[in-house]
Design a protein around this nucleic acid. Sequence first.
DNA 1: GTCTATACAGCGATAGAC
DNA 2: GTCTATCGCTGTATAGAC
Lengths: 186, 186
Amino acid sequence: MSASPPGAREAALPALAEVFREHGYAGASLALLGARAGLGKGSLYHAFPGGKEEMAQAVLDAIGAWFAAEIYAPLRDDPDPRAAIRRMLVETGAYFRSGRRVCLVGALALSDERDRFATRIAGYFAEWRDALADALGRAGRAQAADLAEDAVLAIQGGLVLARALDDADVFARLLDRLERRLCDPP
Amino acid sequence: MSASPPGAREAALPALAEVFREHGYAGASLALLGARAGLGKGSLYHAFPGGKEEMAQAVLDAIGAWFAAEIYAPLRDDPDPRAAIRRMLVETGAYFRSGRRVCLVGALALSDERDRFATRIAGYFAEWRDALADALGRAGRAQAADLAEDAVLAIQGGLVLARALDDADVFARLLDRLERRLCDPP
DNA sequence: GTCTATACAGCGATAGAC
DNA sequence: GTCTATCGCTGTATAGAC
């Protein structure tokens, strides 16, 4: 029981997320997670009784909720689908710090922890792809599903290549190309 | 000194590579590496005095050599550049087991071990991109550099998405789209 | 609730028998 | 050359003081 500051758990999530992004699931030690969140191990386990796995699941939920609200919902609901797609590209560039920040979901998908988080990983990408396909369809594009799959995958590849070459311009150029490919009249 | 079978080191590389692919650098324990290679720790350290890092560097060298011979060289030298690009797509599909196999270089790029292997990681992708741009240029395509960057990054993204959705068809569809985008007349 | 202390397992690496 | 035994360390997780 007990009345910890009601949002102690939520308050820690951004710090935890950043540690997972920077070090991966295996490399994110409880010492690092606690230090960055400003909590001792006791407090961490009080907020997340399931330990590291529960922390990661909560982080993935928070990431999914952010994308759902800021990106997927506009793609589905904005009466101007092209504007929603442009918004998606701008928000994506900002969220990933122009390619300097790793996508935790993509990194987990490649790791051997994939199975543990399979549902959330698959949901994140399926939702993104389907919301984008919806917007492209409403914008009158043919083969909206293929185009959406291609764009979602390119964003992940852009993050890989930008980090591999240590060159954030790679990601910026990709977003430019995507804007033309997705928003220019067919 | 001593005359270990001259290729003991080389013979172990494919097994070591597979363990690194499946478990990542951090997750590839010496126990796993030795078991899969059929060697005890003593033999492993005899072949790779630098330990796990030397094993990974040797694996990356072998991967780079394979791609250089099978993919980059034809892209640069084949008198029919479109045929070389088609060959690249076929070989890539086979190498990554139609998307069921992870790209070790891409996974390392996302991990926090990136810096340790930065030179080989960057070289792998830069060579691929430049060789493909060369072939596209010889095929008479405009904006060959952009097109090449986009294709190399899409392959990495395709591997991420195929694994995230646990759906190898994602990767197969991507290779089909790339063939049209790269080989069809402009 | 938050801390420190600790249990216990697994890691990379090394030493030394054979 | 290859093995087993072991070192020193770090990991997650838990117990218990406060």
